[in-house]
Write a protein that binds this DNA or RNA. Sequence first.
DNA 1: AAATCCCACAACCGCCGCACT
DNA 2: CAGTGCGGCGGTTGTGGGATT
Length: 236
Amino acid sequence: MGRNPCCEKMGLKKGPWTSEEDLTLVNYINENGHDNWRALPKRAGLLRCGKSCRLRWMNYLRPDIKRGNFTREEEETIIKLHQELGNRWSVMAAKLPGRTDNEIKNVWHTHLKKKLNKKPQPGTERSENRIRKTESFDLDTDRSSELHSSSEISSVTNTTATIADEVCLNTYLDESFWSEVFPGDDSSATSDFSSGNSDYPFQVSMDALGSDLNMVGGTDFWYDLFYKAEELIMLP
DNA sequence: AAATCCCACAACCGCCGCACT
DNA sequence: CAGTGCGGCGGTTGTGGGATT
């Protein structure tokens, strides 16, 4: 007798979760816990398989999940952990409170791997251009001519010296780095509320709201809340 | 304005290890 | 010990939305 595939049963719903389903799942777990994922959907009245419920809860609905983009420090941790552990996403997630293995996996494949792959080889035209860009960097302190390393730049700009120092300087001297150095050049920086960059004042305010964010809601709910909070913060 | 491309991320799938019988 | 069920994990895919042509 073979094992039944998880969602083989007819009538079970697949695809994106609705806010109603989210609410049903969260209400049920809050009242009854989740000791048996297999039985949970039936008990809760959901037309989903247990695996789908578990995934939705673990990756999205848990109250302790941190929302927003990854900070530089988190990215640094992921890169270092990946060097040590390889693709052991769940182990990494255990070391990054509020982050899920799925989230870490996604950010690795969509951001960090590309960044590392962009690492220029010493002596190439690209790296030479970046070095020139670094050396011509103009700061209020007029120390640009003295700057030759990422840590020196970062010590002035309060960006992330450690990540660049420990991983690779040129990897991080890309567009995102410069947009942080010159936030005024990026008009979206101060209005992009989905940005998790803690350098921006609204992110600090969102952190302060953290306890109030531990509630039920789908994607639309969160974005609505973010934009409402943004409006408040942007008000004089 | 429409078509196409690209990216980010939520969700699914199949496999594995462990506990239980 | 073998069979079974379940939770958990990592790889992969589907899709929506923004960017580009």
